[in-house]
Design a protein around this nucleic acid. Structure first.
Lengths: 252, 252
DNA sequence: GACCCCTTTATGTCCAGACATATTCGGAAT
DNA sequence: ATTCCGAATATGTCTGGACATAAAGGGGTC
C-alpha cells in the first residue's frame, strides 16, 4: 500500500463538505428530472471521476440520498432513483418509537418562546391547567429555512432549560437527560389541515395552503402526561417517510 | 502508507456484518443500563481496541446508533447516550408492518377501475413500463361515505382478479393469497397536498382543500417492486393515529 | 470564582486499497 | 425464444492512513 495519495479536495471555507455538495448536486438532478424514478445514477467509480473525489466521499454522498429515500442501492444493481425530492423537503423517519424522539434530520428547533403557559394556549386546547405547564414555541428548520412550526407543553416539574433543550437531540431527550423522565407511551395523530392566516404568516406560506398537522402526547411509565406537542408543516416542505421490513429471525 | 494491513475480521458465515454486531453490543449495553443517558460511550479508538476492528468499522457501528437516535456525536465531545433504545428499534415491525397490509378499520375499497395501466397513469408517474402493470383505482369508504381515493399499480404477473381483491382484507393480502408473493419491505411517504380540481370533484370536496397524501411501495424479498399505491384523504376525513409503547425488553 | 488561552483530544472529512458477494449480462446450448 | 451458466460488475464490508476542527480541559491570572 505504497502508492502516493492525492491531497484531499477540501471544500472552500464556509462551504459544506464535499460529500454533501455531491449529494446536493445529485439531489438537484433528481429533482429537476435529469434522473427520473427508475433511472440509474452514476456509479461510485463514475462519481469519483466526475467530481474528483474518492470512493469513500462518493459513497457518503450516496448514503445521504439513500437515507432520504431518494435512491435504492443494491450490490451490482447500482443506485436506482426511487423518488423525486420535493423542493427543500425534509423527511422524518416515521418508523418506530425512537423516531418520535428525534428532530428530523438537520431541522433544528429554534425556540421563539419558552415560559409560562398562556391561559389561551396549548394547555387550554388540551384542557390542562396552564399553571402546571411550560409552553414552548419554536420553528423547525435548517439555516434560514423554516420547515414547520411547533408548539409544546412541558410539565413544570420536568421542564429543562432552554439551553438544555438546545443541546439535546430532542425535547424528550432533554427531559430524560435532566430529570430521568422517560417516555413510555406516545400517542400520535397525523392529519391534514388548512393553514390559517396566522399560521400562514408565521410560516411564510399562503393562507389556505395544505399542511401536515401532527399531535403527540408523551406519557411516562405510570401513564402521566409530561409532554404534548403539535407541529404544523406546510405542504411541500415536509414528509414522513417510513420503511418497514419484514423482520428476519436469523439475525444474530 | 506502507505498513502491512491486518486481514479483515469478517463475520462468520450467516452472521451480521461486524459493524452491525458491534452496534448491537452497544445498543444492548445502553438498553440494559450499562450506559445511561448522558454517559459517554467508548470512543472510536477504544472501540477499535475492544472489538479488534478498524476505525471505519467502529464509526459505522456508531453511525447506526446515531441514526436510531440513541447517541449524539460531536467532535471532541465524544459519543453521548441521548436515549435508551426502546422497542422502537425493533418496534414490532410485524405489528406495524401488518397494519400496512390492512385497510384502515372498516374503510373498504370500492374498485372503480381495474385494468390496463394507462400510459399517462400512475406507471408514468413512477417511470414504470405500463405494459408490465395493472392499474386499479377505487374509493375508500364505509357505506355511502367516501374517505379517500386510491390508485395502485400491481405487477401483471401477480395481479389478482377484482373478485379476489374484493374478498381479501387488502390488495397485498390478495396478492399473497393467490401468488404467494410476500411483501418484504414497504416504503411509505406521508405528506400534505392541496386537492386539484379533478381530485376535489372525485372526492366531493372543495378544490384547494388540504389532503393527506400517502404513497407506498411494496417490494418482495429480492427487492422487486410488485405493488405501488397512492391514496389521497381530504382533511377532516382521515387521520393516522398511532400509539407507540415502549416495550419491556427484559427478556433479552 | 471567573475568565482567558493554549494544548489536547475525539470526531469529522477525505484519501487509498482489498476482498466479498449479490446481481446483471452475455453467450452457448436447446 | 428460452434456459442455463459463468464471467463481469457495482456495491458492501473492512483495513489503513492523514489532516481539519470543534470542543474539552488544564493552568495561569485577576
Amino acid at each position: 500500500m505504497n502508492t502516493s495519495k492525492r491531497p484531499a479536495t477540501r471544500p472552500a471555507a464556509g462551504q459544506a463538505p464535499r460529500y454533501r455538495q455531491v449529494a446536493q448536486i445529485l439531489r438537484a438532478a433528481i429533482g429537476n428530472g435529469t434522473y427520473k424514478v427508475g433511472d440509474l445514477l452514476p456509479g461510485e467509480i463514475e462519481l469519483c471521476a466526475l467530481h474528483d473525489i474518492s470512493r469513500h466521499t462518493a459513497r457518503d454522498a450516496l448514503r445521504l440520498l439513500t437515507q432520504e429515500g431518494l435512491v435504492v442501492r443494491r450490490r451490482r444493481a447500482g443506485t436506482v432513483v426511487s423518488a423525486r425530492p420535493g423542493p427543500a423537503m425534509f423527511v422524518q423517519p416515521l418508523g418506530g418509537f425512537q423516531d418520535l424522539l428525534q428532530y428530523a434530520g438537520e431541522a433544528r428547533l429554534k425556540i421563539i418562546y419558552y415560559g409560562v403557559a398562556p391561559a389561551d394556549g396549548l394547555a387550554a386546547t388540551l384542557n390542562l391547567a396552564p399553571e402546571d405547564w411550560r409552553e414552548l414555541r419554536g420553528y423547525r428548520g435548517s439555516g434560514a429555512q423554516t420547515v414547520g412550526l411547533a408548539r409544546m407543553l412541558i410539565r413544570k416539574d420536568c421542564a429543562p432549560t432552554a439551553t438544555e433543550i438546545d443541546n439535546a437531540s430532542s425535547v424528550a431527550g432533554a427531559i430524560e437527560a435532566r430529570f430521568g423522565v422517560v417516555a413510555d407511551r406516545v400517542d400520535q395523530r397525523i392529519s391534514a389541515m388548512t393553514l390559517t392566516p396566522l399560521l400562514a404568516q408565521l410560516l411564510g406560506a399562503p393562507a389556505g395552503d395544505a399542511a401536515l398537522h401532527t399531535q403527540r402526547q408523551y406519557r411516562d411509565a405510570p401513564g402521566r402526561l409530561f409532554l404534548a406537542t403539535e407541529t404544523v408543516h406546510p405542504a411541500g416542505r415536509f414528509a414522513y417517510v417510513t420503511s418497514y421490513t419484514r423482520e428476519r429471525t436469523d439475525v444474530e
